[in-house]
Amino acid sequence: HNLTITQGKLFFHYNPKLCLSEIHKMEEVSGTKGRQERNDIALKTNGDQASCENELLKFSYIRTSFDKILLRWEPYWPPDFRDLLGFMLFYKEAPYQNVTEFDGQDACGSNSWTVVDIDPPLRSNDPKSQNHPGWLMRGLKPWTQYAIFVKTLVTFSDERRTYGAKSDIIYVQTDATNPSVPLDPISVSNSSSQIILKWKPPSDPNGNITHYLVFWERQAEDSELFELDYCLKGLKLPSRTWSPPFESEDSQKHNQSEYEDSAGECCSCPKTDSQILKELEESSFRKTFEDYLHNVVFVPRKTSSGTGAEDPRPSRKRRSLGDVGNVTVAVPTVAAFPNTSSTSVPTSPEEHRPFEKVVNKESLVISGLRHFTGYRIELQACNQDTPEERCSVAAYVSARTMPEAKADDIVGPVTHEIFENNVVHLMWQEPKEPNGLIVLYEVSYRRYGDEELHLCVSRKHFALERGCRLRGLSPGNYSVRIRATSLAGNGSWTEPTYFYVTDYLDVPSNIA
């Protein structure tokens, strides 16, 4: 807008934040220059609390790290170098490059900038070799853009010569660093050979998330399962459950009422301010606690030095998902009996873990797994792929695949051998790939016309006998059925096997 004052003059007093240069501009645009008398524009009460600059400061050096910015700028000295009290560095987070010096300023003089007072450097006698002032900004957020400017702080001049310097606002972004852990990993099994893994992005990506790394490792069953005799009275049979499938998407929606109208769909109840505040506090606490764990609990591995020492970490090797089922080394339970199943799973520490690289999504279907087997899954978020990966501390989750139908069934015939004193040795093959492992066998036998009897055969007993022995049988026709019990439950009964026990007292003698 054009402003013209045809008559009258300007009068400025007691404006401590208004620089004289701005008042002189007002004289020019209003056409009143030359009308004012000496005392109409006070030299001592206008701009006496402001830094009124008329020179431009330029930054000469900028260096960044993930949490620091090192700045240096060209030296500046007023005509009387004693008038320079120091520099004021202003900075704040700036997602967009549209910041002005006066953003967030209120009537009390406060604003949204963080201000650092910096002492002037030592003055050199040689004007050509003056030290460049600077400042190291610490405690910054990774991968965050900051708006920065600097200006001088000078003393009051009796001659009211307006001098000083100020830089333009520059924008500097800190470097990326390792992201925080992925949030809320959930693993479920939808079949006997697959596990579905879902997660949420890290709360602090500290860069642009480029991919996720998912490692999985087959877990050995508890050692007590191999040692305890679950045929003993009072000892509860062990059981394991597989990871249940995901709930429906509708039930997972946030901010939804727990109660549904019987007449149909209901609208979600909005969260109160107290609920939102509580969630923010919980989120802040979780982030602080995660940072504490990362800094205190997890110790970084030592990389190899120039002395030739090897990095103890196993090298990563990509495998196809079809090879995942046989990740671990199978060892027989008892070496003397080769027909026992290889369900003991000690994992070799030198073995390469299978892994998958996930790009542009937060889910993965891990296939080719062994049925009813526990897996430990390790999830890392990465925001750099080359020249070397920059990934987060791992988040861990466990899951067990679903049982395989008929995996616990005894394959092959049940054979028998009759000894003296009416002892019958029953023999059968253990299931080759049971659900988890076989903890015991149930032997059901009966003599024709009598009630059915049951015998429990422990895992250890089966390994020693290759089956079991029935003792003290009365003469007669017998039928026997056997079924295995694994961590997933009972298998199917075998087809009945028949044998006849004679009275050993009636056996004919070869003595003449």
Score class of each variant (00 low, 15 high):
residue 207 G to K: 00
residue 208 N to G: 10
residue 210 T to Y: 05
residue 212 Y to A: 07
residue 214 V to L: 10
residue 215 F to H: 10
residue 218 R to A: 05
residue 222 D to L: 12
residue 226 F to L: 08
residue 226 F to T: 04
residue 229 D to C: 09
residue 230 Y to I: 15
residue 234 G to N: 10
residue 235 L to S: 04
residue 235 L to W: 08
residue 238 P to I: 05
residue 239 S to L: 05
residue 240 R to P: 11
residue 240 R to V: 05
residue 241 T to Q: 09
residue 245 P to T: 10
residue 249 E to C: 06
residue 249 E to R: 04
residue 251 S to W: 00
residue 252 Q to A: 12
residue 252 Q to D: 14
residue 257 S to M: 04
residue 257 S to L: 12
residue 257 S to P: 11
residue 258 E to D: 11
residue 259 Y to T: 12
residue 263 A to V: 11
residue 270 P to L: 04
residue 271 K to S: 02
residue 272 T to Y: 02
residue 274 S to W: 10
residue 275 Q to T: 06
residue 277 L to V: 10
residue 278 K to M: 08
residue 280 L to P: 05
residue 284 S to K: 13
residue 284 S to W: 07
residue 290 E to P: 02
residue 292 Y to P: 01
residue 294 H to Y: 07
residue 296 V to C: 15
residue 296 V to R: 06
residue 304 S to K: 15
residue 304 S to L: 06
residue 305 S to A: 08
residue 306 G to M: 12
residue 306 G to W: 14
residue 307 T to Q: 06
residue 312 P to G: 06
residue 320 S to M: 07
residue 331 V to I: 08
residue 333 T to S: 11
residue 341 S to A: 09
residue 343 T to P: 12
residue 349 P to Q: 07
residue 353 R to T: 06
residue 353 R to K: 04
residue 359 V to Y: 09
residue 359 V to D: 01
residue 360 N to W: 15
residue 361 K to L: 09
residue 363 S to C: 14
residue 364 L to R: 12
residue 366 I to M: 11
residue 367 S to V: 07
residue 370 R to E: 12
residue 371 H to V: 07
residue 372 F to R: 04
residue 374 G to S: 07
residue 375 Y to I: 12
residue 379 L to D: 01
residue 379 L to A: 09
residue 382 C to I: 06
residue 385 D to C: 10
residue 392 S to N: 00
residue 395 A to W: 04
residue 396 Y to T: 04
residue 399 A to P: 03
residue 400 R to S: 07
residue 400 R to I: 06
residue 402 M to L: 05
residue 402 M to I: 09
residue 404 E to F: 15
residue 407 A to Q: 12
residue 410 I to L: 07
residue 415 T to A: 08
residue 422 N to A: 15
residue 430 E to S: 03
residue 433 E to I: 15
residue 436 G to L: 11
residue 437 L to Q: 10
residue 442 E to G: 04
residue 447 R to M: 04
residue 451 E to L: 12
residue 454 H to T: 10
residue 464 L to K: 06
residue 466 R to S: 07
residue 471 R to Q: 03
residue 477 N to F: 09
residue 479 S to E: 15
residue 479 S to V: 09
residue 480 V to W: 10
residue 480 V to F: 04
residue 481 R to I: 06
residue 488 A to C: 02
residue 490 N to V: 03
residue 490 N to M: 15
residue 495 E to K: 14
residue 496 P to K: 04
residue 500 Y to K: 09
residue 504 Y to S: 05
residue 505 L to D: 05
